[in-house]
Amino acid sequence: MSNKKITKLLKKNGLRLDNRKFDELRSIKMEIGVLEKANGSAYIEWGKNKIIAAIYGPREVHPRRLSLTDKALVRCRYHMTPFSTDERKRPAPSRREVELSKVIATAVEPIIFTEFYPRTVIDIFIEVLESDGGTRCAALTVTSLALADAGIPLKDLVAACAAGKIDGKIVLDMNGIEDQLGEADLPIAITPRNKEITLLQMDGTFTKEEFKKALNLAIEGCEKIYDIQKEALRKEYIIVKEETEKIEEE
């Protein structure tokens, strides 16, 4: 990305640098079942973000002492490849990645029927291949598709999206430069059916009024994401259905 002294994030006509309106998402593409070895997997392109998620499990817990007697352990490793950022990122997990791994695990756990699989682990592996702001939301969104692909019983999906403040205005889904130069960032995740918030982080400065506005905008964003998720799942299962019908005919 060229960081040529950008000072304004909103153009004179009120549009953003990438010509989006304040409440417009970047273009998003989701694909399900992209890896063969994993129990479930999915891929997402969200603007320039490219992220792949894989699920292994429920399977035996290693090390054993981490296993829980009444439910499955949900464990996540969010990782960015060294080539996913402008400057090469060191491959060892950074403090940011460790924190995001933790919040992603706690944000998806509420949708999983963990009590069906005591003494097991559900491992979530996320690799960010290219990043441009909002990777945690994209990662969380693609993780819930991978969980569905793994056939793990879910109560709902998790849809995630961020809202924030750039040049004093509340906007949806900030890209890398907006995130970097903007005044506030509010990534959230919801279970869209009953609108419960499973992830909420914030940094920057908001008044309470601004926060309310941003929260509502982010929830609207999550709902749009949910539609794309459902569409991706539907597409996948129509193919599965057609294939099984073909086999049955033969």
Partner: peptide, 26 residues
């Protein structure tokens, strides 16, 4: 912050919150 502004937030643990919960918490 000193003017009552919200500077950072973090939801922890796996329990969920509604929008009303969050606003009340603030």
């Amino acid at each position: 912050g000193k003017k009552g502004e919200i500077c950072a937030m973090q939801k922890r643990k796996t329990g969920v919150f509604s929008v009303e919960d969050i606003l009340l918490a603030i």
